[in-house]
C-alpha cells in the first residue's frame, strides 16, 4: 500500500517534507494503525503516538487524506491511495505525526472539567435519576483526541482565546449534570466574545468526531442558557 507521510525531525531536518512509502501489508493489517505499525517495521524513525489501538485512548488522532480521525478505527480498505498522512492541523509540531497538545489541554482545563458541588459527600454515591443521567449521553464519551478542535477554523485562528469544541462539549457536560452546582459560574466563565462566541456553527467538529458526538449542539445549548438568563 502506498503512503505519503509528513516527516519532520527538528534534530535532523532543516524543514518538513513528505516521504513516500510503498509497504506490503499483511492480511491482518485491517486498520490504518496496523498499517502505520507495519510501516514502522520498515523505518523505525517514523514517529507517531498510539496506545490502546481500539478508539478508547485518543492518542493516534491524525489528518488522514485531508480529514482528521483516529488511525486505529479507520479501515485501510476505505482509504484512497496514496494515503496522505499529516499531523493534526493548527497545533505546533513536535516531530512527524506528533503535535504539541499543550494549547488544547489548556483550553480544556479552563472550563473546570470536573464536578463542583460544595455539599458534603454522602455516605454512598451522589445519586441521579435515570432521566438526569440521560442528559449526559453524547457528552461524557469524549476521549480528548483533539480531532474536533484541530479541524475548527475558529480554533486555528484563536487557539489561545477560543475554548474550542472539545472544551465546550465538556463545559456543557457539567452544566447539564444534575449533581453540579456551578452552572452560573460556568456560564460567567464563557461569557466572552472569544471563549464561546467564536463558534460559528461550521460543524467540522461534528463531521470528524470518531465517537460520533455533536459539540455544535452542546455549544448551541450553552448559548441558549446565556440568552435565557439575560431575559
Amino acid at each position: 500500500m502506498r503512503f505519503t507521510i509528513y516527516r519532520y525531525d527538528p534534530d535532523r531536518d532543516e524543514k518538513p517534507y513528505m516521504q513516500d512509502y510503498d509497504v506490503p501489508l499483511e492480511p491482518t493489517d485491517k486498520m490504518l494503525l496496523d498499517a502505520l505499525v507495519r510501516v514502522k517495521t520498515h523505518d523505525d524513525t517514523l514517529a507517531f503516538r498510539r496506545s490502546c489501538r481500539e478508539g478508547v485512548c485518543g492518542s493516534d488522532a491524525i489528518n488522514i487524506n485531508g480529514k482528521n480521525g483516529l488511525a486505529c478505527v479507520t479501515k485501510v480498505a476505505d482509504l484512497k491511495e496514496p494515503v496522505v498522512l499529516r499531523p493534526l492541523p493548527g497545533l505546533p509540531i513536535i516531530r512527524d505525526l506528533i503535535v504539541d497538545m499543550t494549547q488544547f489541554f489548556a483550553q480544556y482545563h479552563s472550563v473546570k472539567p470536573y464536578l463542583i458541588n460544595d455539599e458534603p459527600p454522602p455516605e454512598t454515591e451522589r445519586l441521579q435519576s435515570p432521566e438526569d443521567r440521560a442528559e449526559l449521553e453524547g457528552l461524557y464519551e469524549c476521549i480528548l483526541c483533539a480531532c474536533c478542535s484541530t479541524s475548527c477554523p475558529s480554533f486555528w485562528w484563536n487557539p489561545d482565546k477560543f475554548v474550542g469544541p472539545a472544551g465546550l462539549l465538556q463545559a456543557y457536560r457539567f452544566i447539564a449534570d444534575s449533581r453540579d452546582q456551578a452552572t452560573s459560574e460556568r456560564l460567567d466563565n464563557l461569557e466572552d466574545p472569544y471563549r464561546l462566541f467564536r463558534c460559528h456553527s461550521i460543524m467540522n467538529c461534528v463531521d470528524v468526531c470518531p465517537k460520533s458526538l455533536n459539540p455544535t449542539r452542546a455549544i448551541g445549548k450553552i448559548k441558549d442558557l446565556m440568552v435565557k438568563r439575560m431575559v
Binding site: D9, P10, D11, R12, K40, D43, D44, T45, A47, F48, R49, I94, R95, D96, I98
Partner: peptide
C-alpha cells in the same frame, strides 16, 4: 539495534 538516534520524541528507543 535502532536506526533512529534522534533526541526528539524517539519512539523507536522507547519501544
Amino acid at each position: 539495534e535502532i536506526k533512529d538516534k534522534s533526541k526528539v520524541f524517539n519512539t523507536a528507543r522507547i519501544e
